[in-house]
Write a protein that binds this DNA or RNA. Structure first.
Lengths: 156, 156
DNA sequence: GAAAACCCTGAAGTGGCTATAGGGTCAAGC
DNA sequence: GCTTGACCCTATAGCCACTTCAGGGTTTTC
C-alpha cells in the first residue's frame, strides 16, 4: 500500500509517517519505479506499535528502545519495567502540577466575579498586585513560595 | 541592578530574561557605557508579572495580551475572562488526558506482575499484540477506539 | 489533455526555553 | 600592573514531536 493508504488505516498523518522513517523508527519501505513508498503489513504493525506507545505518552527515544527489545526478544523485562515506571512517574508528576494549576486558575477566575461592577478587572488587578509582591489568591493557599513553575514546570 | 541580580531576585535564569526581552515581553533596559543591561524596579515588576502568569501555565502570547490590557487599563474585563477561561479549559482537558494516561500505564505495568516467571515480558507482549489489533488492557476499558492520543494529544 | 489528487524532497517554523561558542568588562588580590 | 575569576555581551544551534511550506513529479479521472 502507498503512504496515503497507510495513513488512512492508522489515523496517522502522512508527514508523521515520513518523519518516523527519518528518525529511524520505521524501516524504510520499498519504492515503486517512480519513487513512491510501498508498505507491507509488517510495516503497518510497526507503525501501530509506535502509535500505541505514543498514545501512552512515551517519547520516541523510549519507543526506539522498546523496538530494539522487541527485536532481541530475550528477557530485558527489568529494563522495560523501569522504562514504564519512569513514564508513570513522569505522568504522575505532570498530573499533580496540573491539578494545582487548575485550582490556581479557578481561584483567579473567581476574583472577577467578586467585583465586576464598575471597578477595573479583578483578575488583572490580582495579577499586577501579585507581581508587586502581594500574596495572591491563586498561589498562596496551595504553595507559600513565589513561583512554583520554576521548580517543576508544567511542560517539564 | 544588573541582569544577574535581577535573576537572583526573581529566581529566573539570566538567559530567560534576555529571551523575554527579545520576544518583546520585557521593555529593553538602559545600558551601562560598556553595554551591560541596567534594570529598574519597574522592570522587576514587569518580570514578576510575566513569571507569575507563566506559573499559571499561560503561553507567552497571552501574557503579551494581558500586558497590553494592563497598559490600556480600560475595561477589557470580558477579554481577560475569556483568556483565563480558555486557559482553564486547556488545563482541564490536559488533566483528563493525563488521568486516563496514568490508568493506562498502570494497567500495562500490572501485565508484567501477572506472569514474570520464565515467560517473555508481558508488557512488551501486550504492546505488540495491541499493535496487531488485539484489544489491549491499557486502552479498552476506558476508550474503545484505537489511538486516543490522535484526537486529543497530551502535548496539545 | 487538463485538472485533481496523490506522491516526493528539503528546509524552516512551532514554544519556551537551554546551551554553546567566542568574546568583552570589572573588581580583588598579588 | 597583571592575572584570576565572576560577571556581562551577541549570535547561533539544539531540544521535542511534529507541522508547514516551497517547489516540484506522478497517477488517475473526466
Amino acid at each position: 500500500m502507498l503512504i496515503g493508504e497507510l495513513a488512512k488505516m492508522t489515523g496517522c498523518e502522512v508527514e508523521t509517517i515520513r518523519y518516523y522513517e527519518k528518525e529511524g523508527l520505521l524501516t524504510p519501505p520499498a519504492r515503486t519505479p517512480s519513487g513512491y513508498r510501498r508498505y507491507t503489513n509488517d510495516q503497518l504493525g510497526e507503525l501501530n506499535f509506535i502509535l500505541h506507545c505514543r498514545s501512552l505518552g512515551m517519547p520516541l527515544a523510549d519507543i526506539h528502545t522498546l523496538a530494539r527489545f522487541k527485536a532481541d526478544s530475550s528477557l530485558a523485562c527489568d529494563d522495560i519495567n523501569e522504562l514504564i515506571d519512569q513514564q508513570i512517574g513522569k505522568v504522575h508528576r505532570q498530573l499533580e502540577t496540573l491539578q494545582l494549576l487548575e485550582q490556581q486558575l479557578l481561584s483567579l477566575r473567581r476574583k472577577c466575579h467578586d467585583h465586576n461592577q464598575g471597578e477595573p478587572c479583578g483578575i488583572l488587578q490580582t495579577l499586577v498586585e501579585a507581581s508587586e509582591g502581594s500574596p495572591c489568591p491563586c498561589h498562596t493557599p496551595f504553595d507559600q513560595e513565589p513561583h512554583p513553575a520554576h521548580r517543576h514546570g508544567v511542560h517539564e
